[in-house]
Design a binder for these strands. Structure first.
Length: 716
DNA sequence: CTAGGGTTAG
């Protein structure tokens, strides 16, 4: 950077003598420019202003350039362009450029403008000016190509970059290290790693930046091991040691593959080269430790950082979410604000995820308020998170309201809303939304198909489900994944076509995973098909021996058929394998206080009233024709069964809700496992008897009980 | 006048 230490001429000279540092330029100096007619003086003042970045001063100099007819001087024009860019006013550049028809423009000036447009993420404008430049007969040079290639990458159309690649050959800049690196980066960003690798291989020489571009490329293509391999190559054959870009990028790769061992090595390398204090490296390190399950180590690092930027906080908040510390995630969110760090869309999506996982409507609403105050309400990412938060907190109405308010809905917004409807049992609405989305020309992806297929299965739309399923390959050119196959198995299983579901699994081109087999096992439970159920359960035990759910499901099926010995055997094998059923637990909020219940819980301060309420409830439901479904009782001691059934956690929570919530208010209960069949029946009766809406959110769906019916249509 | 980086939503 050129900084005028001393200016030679009259008035300006005296000004600078009185203010030795260009940073101290007073407003006075700019007013006095009018006394000078020398372009060099103006240029020196321009250079000085590059440091102060005052837009007002830039415009004053600009006026002088025009009044003195200096627009024909390329260096002045060029420096002015750069000055406007430094002041963060790209529009001024465009204006200056377009109004300056008579002015002389050389390749340097054009390149300056293209660079600025490229950097201010206006890729299409940059490309337009590149073409304009060529049409005026000026040839691009290696600077121009280095500047335009990031814009090509940004335009997300590899065709632009490929055309540029041809031009580079035509003009003979393919051997330039900057151009080569920019090409590698462009292909990598357009996820064409084959071309990136070819260009990289053909480069006559490469520097660290070139190598780093390769790491980043593989990172983006999720080829993490190859990213790690490049890092190793750098250590082996590049004379420069890895810098902060190499380290932060490769750490991201380590984080994604959960490779703690190599991540630790990189930590050591970064330490050796004095890079650990750098923000990027630090944040990547924290993320790596979080994703490798060492949240504590990440937090240790976090505490050592003096200047924690928003990404550092985001990484910690995500880390909390990652290891299920949802309350802590919310605490960090409020804490970062006290340190004066403004949340961004990443922060909001992470903390809303935490809030959704807690089904904490009050917390979520407070965060919603914050998004409004900080102007994030029109952000598609934040809005999608809000939809999911409201839906998972039990309020489909609010989720829908959020959806309606979004001005520009992207695929994720639509999918969030479709999933919300699906989780709340509004399958038809989910399917309608999906169709509406297709009508708007939005291309569905992997996740949106999962949502619509589960809606189909939920509503029993077999044919529609199969049409959507085959449209994945036929129309949208994607291969169904395990989740989609699981939906189809569920679809068949739900209507009792167990044999067909089994054949469907046999015909799968990919190996059925636990979600696919689990769907069939669930169907077998619901239809009491022990024969297929046993077989599928065995396959599941082999596939995921640590999942208690499968053992419990099979044991329940056996008990239902009165095969107590075999049921006990299943339970015993669970013990032998060291698997323990997670204790069922339910919670309910009353006036901002959360009460948690486990089975037979007597720890609540209103225990006596709760048990009295349950006694009354039992009387009332029996009068309505309720029969206990004892197969859901875990304890096999006769006579104790019914009683045990009555003190399941969700029933205790229901009783408290009935006691403590105002008449007419919905009773919202959350449970950590799938809800038990007997409790489900009782909830239905209770909703009718008390004329209240009961919302039970279990591990995988919402049950909304109204007037004796459940939104899940008794299949979950 | 030129090339590369960390966190996120369904």
């Amino acid at each position: 950077m050129k900084v005028p230490l001393r200016l030679e001429f009259n008035k300006i000279d005296t000004i600078f003598h009185s203010t030795p540092s260009p940073l101290n330029l007073s407003h006075q100096s700019y007013r006095q420019i009018s006394f000078t007619h020398r372009s060099t003086n103006l240029n020196n003042l321009l250079n000085a202003t590059l440091h102060t970045k005052h837009l007002k001063h830039a415009t004053q100099i600009h006026t002088q350039i025009i009044t003195n007819n200096y627009t024909c001087l390329p260096f002045l024009l060029n420096n002015l362009l750069n000055l406007y860019a430094k002041c963060g006013n790209i529009n001024r550049n465009l204006l200056l450029f377009s109004t300056n028809h008579g002015g002389f423009k050389n390749v340097v000036i054009w390149t300056s403008l293209i660079t600025q447009l490229s950097r201010s993420s206006k890729p299409f404008k940059a490309l337009t000016f590149f073409n304009k430049m060529r049409s005026t007969g000026i040839y691009p040079n290696h600077y121009t190509f280095s500047a335009i290639l990031p814009a090509c990458a940004d335009s997300m159309m590899v065709e632009h970059g490929e055309q540029m690649h041809c031009l580079i050959w035509k003009h003979g800049f393919q051997t330039d290290i900057f151009v080569g690196t920019a090409l590698v980066d462009m292909y990598a960003k357009c996820t064409d790693m084959t071309s990136a690798e070819r260009v990289f291989a053909e480069m006559p020489d490469r520097n660290l930046v070139s190598w780093n571009s390769m790491i980043v490329g593989f990172l983006q293509k999720k080829l993490y091991y190859r990213a790690v391999e490049i890092f190793r190559e750098i250590r082996r054959q590049v004379s420069d040691s890895p810098d902060e870009v190499s380290c932060s990028s490769v750490l991201s790769a380590c984080a994604n593959i959960g490779c703690l061992e190599f991540g630790r090595q990189v930590h050591g390398i970064a330490f050796k080269h004095g890079l650990v204090a750098l923000t990027y490296v630090n944040n990547s390190l924290m993320d790596m430790y979080c994703k490798c399950g060492l949240f504590g180590d990440a937090l240790e690092l976090f505490k050592t950082i003096g200047d924690r930027d928003v990404v550092a906080w985001n990484v910690v908040i995500m880390g909390c979410v990652h290891c299920g510390k949802f309350e802590e995630a919310c605490r960090y969110f409020w804490f970062m604000r006290t340190e004066g760090i403004a949340p961004d869309e990443t922060t909001y999506s992470s903390v809303l995820h935490a809030s959704a996982s807690l089904s904490a409507l009050n917390q979520g609403t407070l965060i919603h308020d914050q998004t409004l105050k900080t102007g994030f309400m029109n952000n598609a990412c934040v809005a999608s998170s809000l939809i999911t938060m409201y839906a998972k907190s039990g309020s489909l109405v609010d989720a829908n309201r959020m959806f309606e308010e979004i001005q520009e809905r992207n695929l994720v917004c639509w999918t969030a809303m479709i999933a919300a409807c699906q989780q709340h049992g509004c399958a038809n609405q989910a399917i309608e939304l999906f169709e509406e989305m297709l009508g708007k020309g939005i291309e569905p992806d992997y996740i949106s198909f999962v949502s619509v297929l589960s809606a189909c299965s939920h509503a029993g739309h077999v044919e529609e489900g199969f049409v959507y399923f085959s449209s994945m390959t036929e129309v949208h050119g994607m291969n169904p994944g395990p989740e989609h196959y699981a939906c189809m198995v569920d679809l068949l299983g739900r209507i009792g076509k167990l044999e067909e579901a089994k054949r469907f699994i046999e015909s799968m081109p990919i190996k059925p995973d636990s979600s696919v087999l689990g769907a069939l096992l669930g169907a077998c439970r619901n239809y009491g098909n022990l024969e297929i159920g046993r077989e599928i359960a065995k396959r599941l035990f082999a596939l995921e021996p640590d999942n208690p759910g499968n053992y419990v499901l099979l044991a329940n099926m056996l008990m239902r058929k009165g095969m107590m010995e075999e049921a006990d055997e299943v339970r015993r094998s669970m013990g032998i394998n060291g698997v323990r059923k997670e204790p069922g637990c339910s919670w309910i909020d009353v006036k901002n206080i959360t009460s948690v219940f486990t089975v037979h819980d007597r720890s609540h301060s209103r225990t006596d009233e709760i048990y009295e309420m349950l006694r009354k409830l039992e009387e009332l439901v029996i009068r309505k024709g309720y029969k206990p479904e004892t197969q859901f009782a875990v304890n096999s001691v006769e006579g104790y069964k019914e009683q045990s059934l009555w003190y399941h956690s969700e029933k205790l929570a229901l009783a408290l809700g009935l006691l403590a919530l105002p008449v007419g208010a919905p009773i919202i209960i959350k449970k950590n496992l799938r809800t038990c069949g007997d409790c489900h029946t009782v909830m239905k009766f209770a909703s009718e008897i008390f004329g209240r809406e009961i919302i039970l959110r279990d591990i995988n769906r919402f049950h909304k009980f109204t007037n004796g019916l459940c939104s899940c249509k008794d299949y979950w």
